[in-house]
């Protein structure tokens, strides 16, 4: 009779130990797995070239312009990495902002992966050409209004 009672006690205790929360019971086991993913790198720099270190980033998932899907900040080199959820295809928007400066880039994501990135800067040549056009327009305007009435 005593041995039966002792056995019951042991079984009950074993159950109790096993029924404890998993984190406690299996606290030493850590499983790390690695899977390659196509991540997006956002580079944020001011026009003069220096990185927007510490600028705040908000990532908006398609169809959800009000609440950011992810928040973060760019690193010292002005970079920010994230992996968009490929189950949510559409236009993802990444907004970078620091001290009222900032911009938005749009990334087209399809189930197969990233397709297209829109929103980029101009080359120095394009800039110079546009500046020259404006300059010439202004000089032309000045000359036009300067001419004497006939």
């Amino acid at each position: 009779m005593d041995s039966v009672r002792a056995l019951t006690l042991i079984v009950t205790m074993a159950f109790l130990v096993l029924a404890m929360p998993a984190e406690v019971a299996l606290g030493h086991g850590v499983e790390l797995s690695v899977a390659p993913h196509e991540s997006i790198e956002v580079n944020a720099a001011y026009e003069a070239g220096e990185p927007m270190a510490g600028a705040q980033v908000a990532v908006f998932a398609p169809g959800e312009p009000a609440e950011p899907w992810l928040r973060g900040s760019v690193d010292e080199e002005g970079r920010f990495f994230f992996v968009p959820d490929s189950d949510r295809p559409g236009t993802w928007e990444v907004q970078v902002r620091q001290a009222g400066h900032g911009g938005i880039v749009r990334i087209e994501v399809e189930p197969a992966g990233v397709v297209e990135v829109t929103g980029g800067g101009l080359t120095p040549l394009q800039k110079a050409l546009m500046a020259a056009c404006v300059l010439w327009g202004s000089i032309g305007t000045a000359l036009y209004f300067k001419r004497r009435a006939v």
Binding site: A131, V134, S138, I139, T141, A142, F145, K146
Partner: peptide, 12 residues
Amino acid sequence: VPKASLLTAVFF
């Protein structure tokens, strides 16, 4: 206008 036009270019 000529003065304003030229200074607009400078500002730009």
